[in-house]
Each structure stands twice: as structure tokens, then as C-alpha cells.
Design a binder for these strands. Structure first.
Length: 286
DNA sequence: CGGAGCTCCTGGGGGC
DNA sequence: TGCCCCCAGGAGCTCC
């Protein structure tokens, strides 16, 4: 569930609470949470002792905390249910606590909690632009000044797929997941199965504007939450879910035209559309 | 190599 | 009440 706005909320929290602090030790309670750290759980923990987090960065749904050696970072992805929490040591361990960072200056600890274990952390080398090597294939996100609208439009023209699949492809545009894809498509009045190569310049411009608008609005409300699995570093949920126009709104009236929102199976998940504002194209691709 | 489908995981919720 | 099954989903991987 955490998509760009939720991850950005977490990044800001980390920036406020863990920068400049020296790591005293690290506990890995569940090996799966560091499965992307190739050298293994004990190497993950050992290699971080005495290191200092110097920054908190993000690209799409990935977060990373560069270290004071200037060449490495702790890279993280929240997956479906990952949480990075700042907690005093006295707070009992969460049921799904996976990784704990204890700092030399005492409270608070940094805890990675993850029920479904799709998320995880790893130590990685930094590459060009200070981006960790393992996420070099992730495209800039639409809120990044490095995002190239025209390059994105041209890439869509070369693709032979549906526009929602393209939006979810993190190597084309990062940070968009199922929720914000449906919201942006609703705002842009595009059906998810619209073939990417048929999108005209104004369609792509409208789509990117919609993505940026909905993410900006969500960020202003602290992100989206459904079941409090997603929270900021203080354990608080955002409330953008109250503002959703399409995602999860099956049967509710479209805010623009009153037609009931429809749910379709899509990639073993769901897509929500207004059948009137977002008519299915003749030559659908998905 | 692009596109599509599979898989990892767990708790909540619906159905019987 | 209890049990079973489905569902949610990001992204790496595999297969064609």
C-alpha cells in the first residue's frame, strides 16, 4: 500500500529523527527482512555498527539512508505492510518487529516492522547521482526534478501495453501503485486498458498532471491508510483515503457524473473506474 | 529484450 | 462458533 506519498511521509520522519546519530547495534529478528542483503543478516548488522546516517532520500517507493563513509547506504522498501517507527526502548516489541537499530545516544530506537514481509532493508553501495546500485533501474518519480516528461511520453509510444500497466512499471515512472494509478486515471478520464501507443501528447500531459495532483493532495493529508498498516514514523495514519474518487469505491457514485464506480479484476488485483468518464477503449490492452 | 504471469507473505473478513 | 478460503499487493523472477 505505501506508494510515493506515504514513503515521502516516512522519509521526512526519518530525516527528523535519525540523522547524525551513531548506530550502536542492530538486531535482525527475521532474516527475510534483509533477504536483499546478499552477505546475510549478520553481515547486515555488523557492517552498520558505529555508522552514522547522514541523509534520508527517496526515489519512487524506495528509501535510503546514506552513511557517513560516503559510499554506502541502508536501502529500504516498505512492500505492502512495512513500517519504520521511531520508538523509545521501553515500548514493547511489536508483534512483527523485524529489525531494530539501537543508537549510541539512547532513545528513540528505529524499528522496521512488517507483517507481510514483502518489504526489507539492505546495505548497498552508492552509484552515480548518489543512487544505490540495486535501484539504478528505478526511474525517477514524477515529483523528482530529474523526471523527463517528454522521455516518458516517447517511452509510452514504444510500449505495447495498457496505460495502467505502464504506470505501475517502476522502470518507466516510479512511485505509482494501484491506488494512485486508479486515482490518476480517473482524474485524467483514461481507461486502464488504453493502449499506450494511442496516447496523444495532451493525454500524457493530462495523465502526468493528474498523477502529480493526486500525489500532492495525498502528501498534504499525510498519505492514505485503510487498515493502519501504513503509518508515519510516529505510528500515525494519514487520511487521504477519505478523498479517494475511484480506488475502493465500487458501487459508489462517481463524483463527476454520478455513475456507479465499477471494479474489474486486473493483474490478480482490482481496477476501479467510472464506466462513463473512463469508457473502455475499442482496442483494449492489459 | 519486452510483455505477461507467477510468487513471496499474513491477517482480516466473508461464507458456510 | 469455528474453519476454510480468498483477498490485498510491490517487484523480482521466469518463461515465451
Amino acid at each position: 500500500m505505501p506508494e510515493l506519498p506515504e514513503v515521502e511521509v516516512v522519509r521526512r520522519g526519518l530525516s527528523a529523527h535519525v540523522l547524525g546519530r551513531t548506530i550502536e547495534h542492530v538486531d535482525v529478528a527475521h532474516g527475510r527482512a534483509v533477504r536483499r542483503h546478499v552477505a546475510g543478516p549478520s553481515d547486515f548488522a555488523d557492517s552498520l555498527v558505529k555508522a552514522v546516517f547522514t541523509d534520508a532520500r527517496r526515489r519512487g517507493k524506495y528509501l535510503w539512508l546514506p552513511l557517513d563513509d560516503g559510499v554506502r547506504a541502508v536501502v529500504g522498501h516498505l512492500g505492502m505492510s512495512g513500517q519504520l517507527l521511531v520508538q523509545p526502548a521501553a515500548v514493547p516489541d511489536e508483534t512483527h518487529l523485524r529489525i531494530r537499530f539501537v543508537f549510541a545516544d539512547g532513545d528513540p530506537q528505529l524499528r522496521f516492522v512488517d507483517q507481510r514481509t514483502f518489504g526489507g532493508l539492505a546495505v548497498a553501495e552508492l552509484g552515480p547521482g548518489g543512487v544505490p546500485v540495486p535501484i539504478a533501474h528505478i526511474a525517477p518519480d514524477p515529483l523528482d526534478p530529474a523526471f523527463d516528461d517528454e522521455a516518458f511520453r516517447l517511452a509510452l509510444g514504444r510500449r505495447r501495453t495498457g496505460v495502467k500497466r505502464a504506470l505501475l512499471d517502476q522502470s518507466l515512472i516510479s512511485g505509482v501503485g494501484n491506488i494512485y494509478a486508479d486515482e490518476a486515471l480517473w482524474r485524467a478520464k483514461l481507461h486502464y486498458a488504453r493502449a499506450t501507443e494511442t496516447l496523444r501528447r495532451p493525454d500524457v500531459a493530462r495523465l502526468l498532471a493528474a498523477v502529480r495532483e493526486v500525489m500532492g493532495a495525498a502528501l498534504a493529508q499525510g498519505g492514505t491508510s485503510f487498515d493502519s498498516l501504513y503509518v508515519n514514523v510516529n505510528g500515525e495514519s494519514g487520511y487521504f483515503d477519505r478523498s479517494l474518487d475511484a480506488y475502493g469505491q465500487e458501487g459508489r457514485s462517481c463524483r463527476r457524473c454520478g455513475t456507479p464506480i465499477r471494479r474489474d479484476p486486473f493483474m490478480n488485483r482490482s481496477s476501479y473506474t467510472c464506466p462513463r468518464c473512463q469508457p473502455r477503449p475499442r482496442h483494449a490492452r492489459w
